[in-house]
Amino acid sequence: MTKGVKGRNYQLSIIGRYLVLIVIGLIFVFPLLFMVMSSLKPNMQLLRDSGSLRAFLPVGDISFNNYIDAFKRVPIARFMFNSVFVTIITLVFGLFINSLAGFAFAVLRWPGKNIILALLVATLIIPFETIAIPLLLIVNELPWIGAQGFKIGWLDTYHVQIIPFIADAFGIFLFTQFFKDLPKELVEASRIDGASWFQIYTRVFVPISGPVFATAAILKFLGMYNQFLWPLMTSQSESYRPVMVGVQYFFQLNVAWGEIMAYLSMITIPVLVFYLWLQRAFIESIAASGVKG
């Protein structure tokens, strides 16, 4: 990898590396290809093609009809806005609160933290379906002060989809483990300089933890964006529903597979855009941490 003589062997090894990358890439890319190609085909043809390599090729009767029909069936723009809005707000608060807790668990010494962390990690296994009903009963009794004044019960709002998911054990654990990997010298040096713990968090840890924040962000984004059961239970009016509830709109007696593929292709775009944007942020932050490290 050192910059030196770029001989024949080096070029061969580069080609070899690309070959490996491409072969593995093919294994991962095929569902997306299948999805996108299918979204362009009429239902019957899509199903017939699904058993052969034609599934990956834009052949036969190709059109954007499925997209047009999907727009007619589901208020896509509304659902997309709801999902992105709920996801982003949860994400922003979540990154802050979870990383702060992660910092406390990784860096500070306080009684009880090991037991609490072990318990938190174990809560990751609780299937959401198990707590959905009690959670529903709880949020139904919680007060809220909003535009319409004081109100009991959170149903049919955005915040019922946001607040319960801001803190998550996965995020806390992720930050904890990564902060533990950072060199201890960083903390000790700053303490000597008289920095407070909060300053160490904001000025030392946050700036060099770009990759972790990016990872936590994308994983949280996926989790929130794919929410289904909870928004279904708590948003009774269509105006608060997110995209995954929309998928159900296509499961009529005769499933409109082509439209489903079109819808899925569309709702995947925000996730991809977010991921690509984060990747750039990733690289910049790595460049930055390289200087400091």
Binding site: A101, F103, A104, K113, I126, T130, I131, P164, F165, I172
Partner: peptide
């Protein structure tokens, strides 16, 4: 104290929306 304080927002939310339901 700082440790508890920094972990508190997350722990309170988790307590309300995860631990108590569980």
């Amino acid at each position: 104290l700082t440790g508890w304080f920094m972990a508190a927002p997350a722990l309170i939310l988790l307590l309300t929306f995860l631990i108590i339901p569980f």
